[in-house]
Structures are given as C-alpha cells and as structure tokens.
Amino acid sequence: MPTWTLNTEFKFDAAHFIDGYDGKCGRMHGHTYKVHIAAKSHKLNPSKYLKSADMVCDFKELKWAAAEGTKGGLDHTVLNEELPVSTTAERIAEYIHKETQTRIPDGIELTVTVWETETSWVEYTDKDV
C-alpha cells in the first residue's frame, strides 16, 4: 500500500502560565515553541489551493499555528486566553493536533511534536504507535 508522510516544522512565540502549578511555571512566562508535524496518508488529496488529488494535504494547513493570533494562529498570544485546556506542553500538542485535524482531509494520521525548550518536548498522536 502506498504511503506518504509529509513533514513540516515551524516556531511560534507565546506566553503562558500553568494554572495551579506550585513553582515558577505557575507564573506568566514565555517560550519560543518549536513544532514538528508528520502527516501520514495512504492516498493523495486535493486541497483548497489545488483541486487535483496530488498532495497529502497543504503545508499551509499544517502550519496554521505559526500565524499571529490576530490571524487565527498562536504566535504572540497568551496561550491561556486561546486554549480551552491547561497550557502544559502535553495539552498544547494535543490542541494543535485536534485543531489541525479539522483543517485537513479525513484519513490522515498526524503526529505532533512540541518543544517547549531545546531539551524538553512532547509527542502526541491519537493512534497507538
């Protein structure tokens, strides 16, 4: 069975605090988040930018979170004001995954990796690996 895995990385800057955290992460602070998204598909699809079925999905749809907050992304936002969940790295990865799924064709398996620092990251998928 043919398989394509589309990969992209981007960064965004945002502030947050972890509500209820007993320590410095409970206070407002910022990060330059790095995000890697892998999109795996067994078929090619059209997109809103290309009508023929020649791509897994559009890179633009995978990189939505890199846009400024005023344009629907997460860049230069306070994550506590944007996300309906706690702003731990785990929940940020889960949120980006779920929001990205709504923007791409059905049947694409996503893996989202979020680095909060150069040495600390989390990977999220809704599939067993």
Results as ranks from 00 to 15, higher is better:
K34Q: 13
E116P: 10
Y95I: 02
I92D: 01
M55I: 12
C57E: 01
A89Q: 01
V129R: 12
I108Y: 04
Y33N: 03
W4K: 03
V112S: 01
L79Q: 06
T3D: 05
N80D: 11
K60Y: 12
A89C: 14
H76F: 12
K43P: 01
H16R: 09
H29P: 06
I18R: 10
V78N: 15
L62S: 06
D58H: 14
E61S: 15
K60T: 13
E123K: 14
V56D: 02
F59A: 06
H97N: 11
T3G: 00
C25I: 05
N7E: 13
S52K: 15
R91E: 15
Y124P: 00
I108K: 06
G23W: 09
F17D: 07
K127P: 00
G73R: 05
W121G: 00
T77C: 05
E118I: 02
A66E: 14
L44T: 07
V35R: 02
K43S: 14
Y21C: 14
G73H: 08
V114L: 08
A15C: 14
E99T: 14
A67P: 00
F17H: 14
F10T: 03
E61H: 11
M1G: 14
I96T: 00
S47R: 09
H42Q: 13
D106C: 02
K60P: 00
T70H: 08
I108C: 04
A15E: 12
H36T: 12
V129K: 14
L79F: 08
L74S: 03
E109I: 12
P46L: 05
M1F: 03
E68Q: 11
S86T: 14
V78S: 03
I108L: 10
V112L: 05
I104M: 04
E82G: 00
I37V: 15
C57V: 08
H97M: 04
T77I: 06
P105W: 02
N80P: 10
H97Y: 15
T88Y: 02
A38L: 09
D126L: 10
F12I: 06
H29S: 10
E61A: 11
P84I: 02
K34E: 13
M1S: 13
Q101P: 01
L50F: 09
T3K: 10
E90Q: 14
S47N: 03
Y33E: 01
G73Q: 05
G30C: 09
K11T: 12
E82T: 05
E94I: 01
D13I: 07
A14F: 07
Y95Q: 01
K60D: 13
L110I: 12
S52M: 10
T8V: 12
I37W: 00
T70I: 13
T125Q: 08
K24Q: 12
V114F: 03
T117E: 06
L83N: 07
W115T: 07
K24N: 13
N45V: 09
D22A: 14
I92V: 15
H16D: 03
K40F: 02
E123D: 06
N45R: 09
S47H: 04
L50W: 07
G26A: 10
T88P: 00
E9D: 11
G23M: 07
P2L: 09
V78Q: 10
W64Y: 13
F10G: 04
L74R: 03
G23R: 11
N7F: 07
T111R: 11
N45G: 07
I37A: 03
M55N: 09
D22Q: 15
M55Q: 15
K48A: 10
V56Q: 05
T102R: 15
R91Y: 11
V122Y: 09
